[in-house]
Design a protein around this nucleic acid. Structure first.
Lengths: 323, 323
DNA sequence: GTGAAAGCGCTAACAA
DNA sequence: TTGTTAGCGCTTTCAC
């Protein structure tokens, strides 16, 4: 009897034992499909991210997993490869399972995708970015602001001849916004980026090396290099150290993400924490809270959480004396 | 009518259009739960891995994802944190969705977990390891053999005073088997490991640095260091370069995994490829092939695929001249 | 405290 | 080619 398995309703201890025994003996595993159909409740949460190859996303997943641990909710991951059409398709497939909620990376979605999210009638949390209008809830950082913050920090230390290196990913909106915020921050101070270069594919660390070599070759006067992620930044750092260039005296460096890896480098790369697992955890918590609400309750204002990234100066961004 | 949406059965073009139109107008998304219940078919494949923090597993997932792309099959990921009891629980939850197959890391499972896998009546592919008895299909490499191969390569180059560093993970059976194979290979040649050290937690790159410093401090005569993964190996390499130690002349180094990261280091760490995305792809393909079989067909002998890892000598493992 | 029965939204089989 | 209907294995409700 299903009442026993779910500890629900009134069941005498005697029958409970009997049923439990029989279930174990038969190796009975309940069928969630039938259960979910009958109860109109599904303990799955769709999690839609662009990629698994960039450690950023597994880290977000780890935060989500950790938070769902101990709840009946189970994340189901879909990967879009940064392709809007694939996002649409993955979303459609996921929604057809009638999940309890959706956690989806980014705020930019195709119109059909937005429509699906809006009409699904379930909590939707858009994560990792706060520069835009969410469908429902939102947890992330402002990448525009992150770019501006880094620009300000760099200018403050007196660097003026600045180069930028990043991914050639027109669909990576967060990297794009960071770049926009960065140039905007510089422009306000009357400074323009002197060199820029974009890559795609390959080992990020190796690319960082190559691109840095090429850029300094072309523009030997640069005194600061800003990288759109820590991996290429680390490659650049290793290159400069190999070349015996004084870091951060002659050339300063900064990346983005605060990856664990940086701890082991000969010099700590300046970077900015993107709060990845916190974002995952907060998003999962929003779903948990909403699912706990009675069916007809007013969910109130959707949560809009903007975390603040912090700059880590490390050893590659000069720091004026303070006391 | 469901015949239209699924392109099944005979439907006239006229009605087809009408239904399609109505579906779009209503924003209709079919309910897979009801569909799966009725058809007794579920397009989900359970993928159970120990962790997402180690890039190895996301890479396997990428291989799986790529292979399932274009098929109706959808992977659902569960993470066990290397805990047998959690594996059992995750497996139970997944099986209760009656997936089309299971891809699970490792060959070591608790008795109840094995029983569940055996009784599920669906294809099961155990991946990443071939040293043991699979429940059904199996795709991976022999970590014992990988350890022996590395031992042989090291001995061949004349190294004799060997240290080992790895994770303190009694439940990481693959790392354990690699270590066993390695010591076995050395022992056969009458050589014993002179120093060993195990770590847990923290940034692997930083740990590699620290452990290497500590080990060489204790045992300055070592002429080779074998690391159980590339990350700590890379940390060790960076340390030795910082110290100005001649690599691979004075001290040789090798890691394991063939991570992309190594391409960008100042010196390429010797390593061994674990065929991660190939394993994922092959496992997914086994599930696809089996699902294509008619319900009552004889699946035949389950696939048992042992891939062969290859040693990359890089710049940290001396190589005798050959011609 | 327990048993029985009506669906949940589809699919598959069959009748028309 | 189309309409109809009996389940799929549960949950939920209601009567006992």
């Amino acid at each position: 009897m299903s009442r026993v398995l779910r500890n629900r309703g009134d069941v005498s201890e005697a029958t409970r034992q009997k049923v439990l025994e029989a279930a174990k003996a038969l190796g009975y595993v309940p069928n969630q499909i039938a259960g979910s159909l009958a109860s109109q409740r599904v303990n799955l949460v769709a999690v839609i991210i662009p990629s698994l190859s960039n450690m950023v996303f597994p880290e977000v997943l780890t935060g989500i997993n950790r938070t769902f641990d101990g709840t009946p909710l189970q994340p189901v991951v879909g990967v879009t490869d940064y392709l809007p059409e694939k996002e649409e398709q993955v979303l459609y497939e996921m929604l057809s399972w009638r999940p309890s909620g959706v956690i989806i990376a980014g705020l930019e979605h195709s119109d059909p995708a937005r429509a699906m999210l809006q009409n699904a009638g379930i909590p939707v949390v858009e994560i990792m970015d706060t520069d835009g209008n969410p469908v429902d809830a939102m947890v992330g950082i402002s990448h525009r602001r992150a770019g501006r913050m880094m620009a300000a920090a760099i200018l403050k230390e007196g660097y003026t001849r600045i180069g930028f290196m990043g991914t050639k990913m027109p669909l990576d909106h967060r990297a794009r916004k960071r770049f926009e915020g960065f140039t905007e921050g510089l422009t306000k101070a009357g400074i323009e980026i002197e060199a820029r270069d974009f890559y795609s594919g390959g080992s990020a660390l190796a690319k960082g090396r190559e691109m840095t070599a090429a850029m300094l070759d072309r523009s030997p006067d640069l005194d600061f290099l800003y990288y759109s992620n820590d991996m290429i930044g680390a490659g650049g750092l290793l290159y400069l150290l190999d070349e015996g260039i004084d870091v951060p005296g002659q050339v300063g460096l900064a990346g983005f993400n605060g990856v664990e890896l940086l701890q082991g480098l000969p010099r700590k790369l300046a970077t900015m924490d993107a709060c990845r697992s916190e974002i995952g955890a907060a998003a999962a918590q929003i779903i948990i809270d909403r699912s706990a609400l009675p069916e007809d309750a007013d969910p109130g204002e959707p949560a809009r959480i903007a975390l603040t990234p912090t700059i880590t100066y490390g050893d590659t961004l000069r720091r004026t004396q303070r006391r």
